[in-house]
Design a binder for these strands. Structure first.
Lengths: 356, 356
DNA sequence: CTGAAAGCGCTTACAG
DNA sequence: CTGAAAGCGCTTACAG
């Protein structure tokens, strides 16, 4: 093996020479839909194969002004929901012949360096799935004329597209479920208070409880973070007047809360405490947890995201589109069951209260 | 908000005109180390700011023949170990001023389309963290003169660089630990049998057991997959002659095995069955599992990976380098403790047998 | 330190 | 259908 510098790379001109045709002919051979005779194409293909030619996507991008790269901004991947999203995004984008440039592992504070790089690589579109820098970054990108989709979040000004689920209805559904289960004292462990998902989930929960006459909510902040959720759980659940029903703003935190409740505080779930989470992510399904959780239809969310992006890229029209999908309350073992309303659909148990 | 096509983008020539200098001067201003007077630089910077100029990385790549893009191939992200790796890779690569192009969500079979795209984008380096297509893909890339690092795996022919931990010693350590714990019947749930990690872990385990006089190992295949691991556990643990000590080839499977053992089969851990895993990944630390596990030093592994890549890119020398790091057996609650050898280091309990 | 010029590897009117 | 030519937005010898 001779160690080598990065090999020069075969160019279309070299292939052209070998095939005895013009460089344009080579280019056309590799451009779907371009006008080229079968005979010429065959000659080019043969030469290309011999030389191991592959069109240089960088050069192509420069001239077409399309990088065929979608940037995905996802600050942290600890919550398994996001790796799942990433995997599905990878799957769908490759089908559309797009590449995925990932921005992760940075502090959620500094949006400027990220933005700079997005711009430098002239990405064709952006998926923003990072909680806190959404607003600033999305406005900048939108202003630059690049399609942006906020994934699982929205901003106040709805000038930028988003894909979400009905978080408010979800929160309300959780309230109905817990009320139907006969609980008396209600708690909430919040996600990042500035995030739209948390705001909406809490608002719906509050509304739902209020309609049933429950106006007091025992409240702690978990910031969508494991350690903070544990601390919140310790604080809330070690008091004598702890709740008997607890809505945790996502499953990632709910797992931590359950561990604290059971193993540190010796509470039985759901006998002493009912817990409901959000997302229906992997660990929620593990039998150690069996979290009753509002699901978010991940595949359909990713599909909608890619569709919006592709539409905007091909039309050149950047008109904000908001896709709002429905979730379901998947019933498992972490919360007491209500007398009615739990139905079996496709082998899963769902809470569907009779319409009032 | 006027919906617009992707805005044309400001070019260096426009900035030059605005600043009253040559296009070369603009280029030099944005090339670290280029010869440019403070005065000219200031004029350029002012004009650039006014116009919102950012160098076009695509054009730069074309001429420098460096894309500053590292491809990361990671077929699936279900095992949290990999998202953790991804996050750390993102962190370190951005520090080196490299971007991360992610290939994920594809079937592990088809390596050709992936390879094609790697080549088309002229990536400067590749991190291969996908189990099954490692060998073919890595050889092709190496042949093309692109630095490749196999992450957490090796191939027979060691022409391509790799970063691993001492899996064999790890397997042996697990054996020593379980033997020291006084267990009598030993089981193994394997990962992908064709993978180097699995082969080495099993070989070490077998050796370690054999040295203590235990030559029989109850064996099932889990293929590093949750569902398959569950099935393997059901089969192995429902028999009357089930093991009392079980080494599961990674934590991702160990979690599933523990759930089956406890909740389906009613076994107590570690009273009825000791379980040891590998990786020391997130869920291993959750109190519901508390898995005793061989750790892999993720941060140092990623650091080594990036170092190898950067070295090879800057030197132009692609000489295979194999970095092999040490892990530790982190002791938690999923396995019976031996009488001696467990020590406390930095607040963690580690198994360090006295040297024989 | 500076500018004019060549050239990276393509796509795409344009003329035939 | 085909080829010659222009040009995408940069970097980098080269000459001054």
């Amino acid at each position: 093996m001779d160690s080598g510098v990065k090999k020069p790379g075969v160019t279309s001109s070299q292939v052209a020479r070998r095939a005895g045709v013009s460089q344009s002919a080579v280019s056309r051979t590799f451009t779907p839909g371009a006008s080229i005779s079968p005979k010429t194409r065959a000659k080019v293909m043969a030469a290309a194969k011999e030389l191991g030619y592959r069109p240089n996507a960088i050069a192509r991008s420069l001239i077409t002004n399309r990088s065929r790269i979608i940037a995905v901004v996802m600050a942290y991947l600890e919550n398994l929901f996001y790796p799942d999203v990433l995997e599905e995004l990878g799957r769908l984008l490759v089908k559309e012949n797009y590449r995925l440039l990932l921005f992760t592992g940075f502090m959620d504070r500094d949006s400027d360096p990220v933005f700079d790089q997005l711009m430098q690589y002239r990405v064709d579109g952006i998926v923003l799935a990072s909680t806190s820098l959404s607003s600033e970054l999305s406005e900048e990108c939108a202003a630059a004329g690049i399609p942006v989709v906020l994934f699982n979040r929205t901003t106040e000004r709805d000038a930028v597209s988003s894909v979400t689920t009905r978080n408010r209805e979800g929160g309300r559904r959780v309230a109905e479920f817990l009320v139907a289960g006969g609980h008396k004292r209600f708690g909430y462990i919040s996600g990042l208070e500035s995030s739209s998902t948390n705001r909406d989930r809490f608002a719906g929960y509050k509304e739902g409880l209020a309609e049933a006459g429950h106006t007091e909510i025992i409240y702690e902040v978990g910031n969508y973070d494991r350690a903070e959720a544990e601390a919140a759980a310790r604080k809330m659940l070690s008091k004598p007047d702890r709740p008997d029903a607890l809505f945790v703003a996502n499953d990632h935190m709910a797992v931590a809360v359950m561990d604290v409740a059971r193993h540190e505080l010796g509470l039985s779930i759901p006998e002493d405490l009912s817990i409901v989470g959000y997302d229906d992510v992997g660990p929620a399904r593990w039998t150690s947890y069996g979290i009753t959780s509002m699901s978010q239809p991940l595949k359909r969310m990713v599909e909608a995201t890619v569709n919006i992006l592709m539409d905007q890229i091909s039309s050149g029209e950047i008109e904000a589109e908001h896709r709002i999908l429905n979730g379901e309350l998947v019933v498992r073992t972490s919360a007491r069951l209500p007398k009615s309303g739990v139905v079996e659909v496709d082998g899963r148990r769902i809470f569907k209260p009779a319409k009032g």
